[in-house]
Design a protein around this nucleic acid. Structure first.
Lengths: 362, 362
DNA sequence: CTGTTAGCGCCTTCAG
DNA sequence: CTGAAGGCGCTAACAG
């Protein structure tokens, strides 16, 4: 069976308290160097492994942070995840990941299950725009920070991108290229990121003194299918645009897919995108395959890994603030809650160098 | 502070033992229905939440399974992850995910850290082909099953795809289309999946009575860059092939990317892939963007989610076998280790309906 | 600097 | 069917 701290203590000829102090240098009294070495040797020899359940029970802390994603199979989120994991690991924490399957109900379940597991804090990419359950948990003392998306009701910390600026730059770039008839495609308007992106789009048009054509604001959804559906409506209308801004990469994919289908390849072959309306797309997010999206002209990319790292840092800060706060409150009864903090990371825009229709058009 | 089982017991006028039995119906003595209801009501009213650390300490089981991936930002693995998570959740387990960053050293660290956390079992997609550390942990009693990739030294259970059959079918399809000069591109030969795929390729050629041209076996790596690099060598050789089988999707992407560059778009424009050698690719794995890969003609797709579910089932089986086994051994001193089990899921092959070069060529 | 002691919250025999 | 009692392995006072 597993060796315990008792075994090590006996083997080293010290008390369990001393072993404990050696095993937890961070927040413990100092131990004489000689003793420490003796203990460590004994532990090594016995193959002693800490029992984290016992430690957690006593310390009321698991050194674990839960991260809830709307879905796992998503390039952007997984880059964020890599960032979070690195940051957390660097600081001695473990990451617990879960998926809410894009459902608020699932999100609630997962979150309460994770809370029961005594995670020290939570990083959430909300599945929806309602955040009462999150707020409630946070108010009951769970350190929490939102990632990528904000939520209604203004209490929670967050780290996200400067979405508004992203679409602003994207749209400006299209305008600079001479496009005037520009549409905005996709966007679950209940999601903060979508609203912000639409807003940046509108601002760029306004800046250029261009009136928004209502039929070119094609909201509705953040998935591949949505881009596919909306693009058809848009391009088959009386009044099609000559350029489109995609709310995210999935919608962008759907749009490209529609263009591909409209080009008539499925039935009769021909030049690539030849028979399709010549439309250019500027899109949010980037991936290894964006060079192959023929209509893609500009991309705005977020620093996903950076976002993860930043979120990791922030949640650890909050966990430690809480620990300190608890100490304070036991001591003096005071507990000053820190102000809400929303961190926005810059996005970088770049021209797609290898899009096909793109090049053929220029 | 958190309510304890004691509070509930008092509120319901019963003993803590009874509350405990109500909270853990699975493996406990029966409780009178009236009492049960009273206890549940009290728990509800107090907002009682189980302390899992305490339960784990006592039960020596955390109802947690760790999953170690070589990397998180990978479509295929994350589909597997979704499958695992669903299965685990359905059975009351929690998934702990970690990334080995494609490094065996990191893998070792993560695994021993996770083992310390008292996970009940582990699902591993090995970072490399050496598995001594895995084997060792398994021998010390940790339930473990490999996913996607096998490992040297033949002790560990696994669930993976029928890789050999996948490339066999892919290659056969190309042959049926009349291609005879077929290359195999990419593959870290230390990884079982790569070896198996190469083997399927070779078998298809042999079946067709075609001699393998050594210079068309372009091994080396599983990443985008590898496909990019290898394709150049291959196509600029004296003796280029007319079709290529890609070992996986990342390599495939790199290959397409090279074709794109060789088509001369970067510098002079022209028809899509027009100036590039006309080559067709058959690749392993599929994604939402494969329709946009111009040279792609066939794909062999694995059931990633199914693989995850199967792996989840298998590890739970092993965890329960172990529990039963422990009981046995206390009783009679016997512990029959079950035979090794390797589960192979079928792959399905399909023609890429919308590849561009593809269509133009036909 | 080190040892003694008293639990953390829950489960599980063993009695009743 | 239910209650009483003794830990699981570790930590955090409090003494020495």
């Amino acid at each position: 069976m597993g060796k315990t701290i008792r075994d090590v203590a006996d083997a080293a000829g010290v008390s369990t308290a001393t072993v404990s102090r050696v095993m937890a240098p961070e927040n413990s009294r100092p131990v004489a160097n000689k003793t420490r070495l003796r203990v460590m040797a004994a532990a090594e020899k016995l193959g002693y492994r800490m029992n984290h359940a016992a430690r957690s029970l006593k310390r009321r802390s698991t050194m674990t942070v839960a991260v809830v994603f709307p879905e796992l199979a998503n390039d952007f989120y997984m880059d964020v995840a890599e960032g979070i994991e690195r940051e957390l690991n660097d600081r001695g924490y473990t990451m617990l990941m879960a998926s809410s399957l894009n459902s608020i109900e699932e999100e609630k379940k997962r979150i309460s299950m994770l809370a029961d597991r005594m995670v020290d804090g939570m990083l959430i990419i909300p599945a929806g725009s309602r955040g009462d359950h999150l707020q409630a948990l946070a108010n009951r003392g769970m350190p929490m920070v939102l990632v990528d998306r904000l939520v209604e009701g203004a209490g929670l910390d967050a780290v996200t991108s400067d979405n508004e600026e992203g679409t602003f730059l994207l749209t400006k770039a299209l305008l600079a290229d001479g496009f005037k008839r520009i549409a905005f495609v996709g966007g679950e308007i209940t999601l903060s990121a979508a609203r912000e992106r639409l807003s940046g789009f509108a601002r760029a048009l306004a800046d250029a003194g261009i009136r928004q054509e209502p039929s070119w604001i094609c909201l509705g959804g953040m998935e591949v299918e949505d881009g596919y559906r909306l693009t058809r409506t848009l391009l088959e209308s009386q009044n099609p645009p000559e350029a489109m801004v995609a709310v995210n990469l999935l919608v962008h994919l759907g749009m490209e897919r529609r263009l591909l289908d409209m080009s008539g390849f499925g039935s009769r072959g021909g030049a690539f995108y030849g028979a399709a309306p010549r439309v250019v797309i500027a899109g949010f997010d980037e991936a290894r395959y964006t060079p192959f999206l023929p209509a893609c002209r500009y991309t705005a990319s977020q620093d996903a890994v950076g976002m993860g790292r930043r979120a990791g840092q922030r949640i650890i800060e909050k966990i430690q603030e809480k620990k300190a706060g608890r100490f304070e409150s036991e001591f003096s009864g005071k507990w000053t809650r820190a102000a809400r903090q929303i961190i926005r990371l810059p996005v970088t825009i770049s021209r797609s160098e290898s899009g096909a229709a793109n090049k053929a058009a220029s």
